[in-house]
């Protein structure tokens, strides 16, 4: 069988699509509450810092951000094409580079916590 990078991209697309569908609405609801002045207990500095200090919290934050970034990058690439931007290679490089930078940045930020 010919080698292809599609399984990697598709894997994050499928897993990311599933994860985003399950958790993104409730996450938006939590920050919406913070946006209207009712910060949920867990989004307070001490509570969130405490959560992110442990390996489990770090793992959860990394998985959510990593899968969201890659699946949405892949979807953005398709959406650009649908809106008539046919420079697919350029778009692909841009969106996947953003996802890669975001993933590395997440690791760096989590390492500081």
């Amino acid at each position: 069988m010919a080698k292809s990078n599609k399984p990697i991209i598709w894997g994050t697309f499928a897993a990311g699509g599933e994860l985003v569908s399950f958790v993104t609405p409730v996450l938006i609801l939590l920050t919406l509450l913070a946006a209207v002045g009712h910060v949920p207990d867990m989004l307070g500095y001490d509570a969130l810092r405490g959560f992110a200090a442990g390996w489990f919290g770090k793992l959860v934050i990394f998985v959510v951000l990593f899968l969201s970034l890659w699946s949405q990058a892949h979807r953005l690439r398709i959406t650009f094409y649908d809106f008539g931007a046919r420079a697919d290679t350029l778009v692909a490089i841009m969106v996947y580079a953003l996802a890669a930078v975001g993933s590395i940045a997440t690791l760096v930020f989590l390492a500081r916590l």
């Binding site: 992110a52 951000l65 970034l69 940045a105 997440t106 930020f109 989590l110 916590l113």
Partner: peptide, 9 residues
């Protein structure tokens, strides 16, 4: 969310 993690750090 990414900015939030950055600010938290």
């Amino acid at each position: 969310l990414l900015v939030g993690v950055y600010r938290l750090s």
